[in-house]
Design a protein around this nucleic acid. Structure first.
Lengths: 336, 336
DNA sequence: TTGAAAGCGCTAACAT
DNA sequence: ATGTTAGCGCTTTCAA
């Protein structure tokens, strides 16, 4: 590894090629008003010095970087990772570059501020546009296009959502078709559209079937394991425990299965279970878990695609794209 | 969403606070030579305008960004993702920010050039140091620290590697302990240290046990499915087929299992199989596959940790850190 | 304690 | 076809 005190700049190239910096800049940007030989000479010098123009300086001047930014709360959760995978795929397909910005997950009031901060950071300088994943806020002041994946609330910002309510309805109606009438629900995060609408779907489907809503059959969850486990236990220790449980995501569904096993119940013999999401981790723990496939990766891909279209003026802002969810029936449910 | 034609700059803040830009800059950088009241006023204006200083401009001037860069070939493969997860964790623990840079995976000659390009891009301007995952080249000219995860070859750049040879030896010696004497091997990418050293471990362990090396028992793989499948079929159609197969990664191991099933063999009754890597995908497809746990996430974490220590001068360059692999015995092997 | 001014590396007029 | 020059938004001397 060569260590250079000061990285080689455009000036160094200009000096070595015995031309002016603007000529080098022209070559760099493929302007056509440079003579063949100068062109060649400069390129050769660039190669020889293994020079790379500074993104910082470049983007500072010319508001165009060919880079798309992604702001994710973290990269620990499967959801974030899958979204990023999808974005990455799109980035390859459309020949953009990708910068992912992430810093610690904070759940306090600073979260929204940090998101705004990151968006400004990327959008103000480095990226041509940014994709924000499950943002806390939707109040971004930015000069460049923004696309949101799984927004917190409705807004006029272009977003990609999945058909959460439809998916939940499909899950519940599948359980109904198996003969279940007492169906429990472990909710998701109610501060997220995805959580709210899955709950809505659960309620709507029951209502549609003429089954009265029983608040006892609904227990809180947060898309994570521990709380869901407690909630599942509550559900199972009810005087009339449900014969089936629908969990707002599959991590919760796994918790339900754990709770059932701890209570000496077998899935699906004694209890049918469906989860929402279909992420690899859940499939790993419980490969036969019936789930709603949310196609998270596709959400990422679609978001990137939208952003690029926005960038190229092919799309109007204030657009919304839905990713259709579908039920994946495996072996964790059973007719009664 | 407020759309501002031009993002708010330090000048706007200065004007609104009726001070000079340098004063604002001082507040921004927590210099102590600013009066309480000016301090307060400026902060208030910053808040009000929801101003964020431009990373580009900032890093251009002051060679310190508190950002760590990661260059990964892609984010499709589990390996990359796991490394990034580990890095992300470290970033949270040490209060840095993280920028991940990725562009298309290319296997042609441009790959090395692109890597250098990305490193220069990050290190020249945006990041204080960078982590490079499975690089093709190790020839980076950069003024900032670099740490490599799973290097292609030995170099004087700090790197994190896992004990590939030891792991392979452990796997093979486990098979030997079960009574296997005819052990097949599906190799990994031989252009990577990891691939080479796993093969080395296979050979060394056999040699150590006094078993002559049989080239027919070694078939090529590339850490991916298709080639491994073909290779596995070759192995199984040998006059004296192996009683056990060790695959250089677990994707290949899955291919071996597929090939075995296609040939009407049962695992582990007719054939014992071990894979290297232990990634979620493989566990999902074949949860009972015996594997070497490479602790990929830990590699990422360790790399970030090293880089930060390097940044803080707590560590000498030219350091090497090994992540210890260990055998995870499940149910895909059987004594004969 | 504050302000003015000189760049950082680059691009985009404007000259030549 | 090429060079000169004026900034982009910021930090950092150097003065005041």
């Amino acid at each position: 590894m060569k260590r250079r005190k000061s990285p080689v700049t455009i000036k160094d190239v200009a000096a070595a090629a015995r031309v002016s910096v603007s000529t080098v800049s022209r070559v760099l940007n493929d302007k056509d008003d440079v003579s063949e030989e100068t062109q060649a000479k400069v390129r050769q010098v660039i190669e020889g010095l293994s020079y790379t123009s500074s993104l910082a300086a470049r983007s500072m001047r010319s508001r165009r970087t060919n880079v798309i930014g992604v702001v994710v709360p973290d990269l620990q959760t499967s959801f974030s990772i899958q979204v990023v995978k999808g974005v990455n795929q799109a980035i390859e397909d459309f020949a953009y570059d990708l910068i992912i910005y992430t810093s610690g997950t904070a759940w306090d009031g600073t979260r929204a501020a940090r998101e705004r901060h990151h968006v400004a950071l990327l959008n103000g300088s480095l990226a041509d546009g940014v994709i924000i994943v499950t943002p806390t806020t939707t109040d971004f002041s930015t000069a460049h296009p923004v696309v949101i994946v799984d927004p917190h609330q409705d807004s006029d910002i272009p977003a990609v959502i999945s058909t959460n309510r439809d998916g939940a309805m499909e899950a519940v109606s599948y359980l109904l078709s198996l003969g279940h009438r007492c169906i429990g629900f472990i909710s998701g995060r109610m501060d997220l559209q995805s959580g709210l609408r899955r709950f809505q779907g659960y309620q709507d489907c029951l209502a549609q079937a003429g089954i009265p809503f029983d608040p006892d059959l609904v227990q809180p969850g947060d898309f994570l394991g521990p709380l869901s486990l407690t909630s599942a236990q509550k559900l199972l220790s009810l005087p009339h425990p449900p014969t089936a449980i629908f969990a707002a995501n599959d991590i919760s569904a796994i918790a339900v299965i754990e709770a059932a096993q701890a209570a000496g119940l077998c899935v699906p013999e004694d209890l049918s279970v469906i989860g929402f999401d279909n992420i690899p981790e859940a499939a790993q723990v419980m490969p036969r878990l019936t789930t709603i496939d949310q196609s998270i990766e596709l959400m990422g891909y679609t978001a990137a695609e939208m952003l690029i279209e926005l960038l190229q003026g092919k799309l109007l802002a204030s657009n919304l794209r839905k990713i259709v969810t579908r039920l994946v029936v495996r072996e964790s449910c059973r007719a009664i």
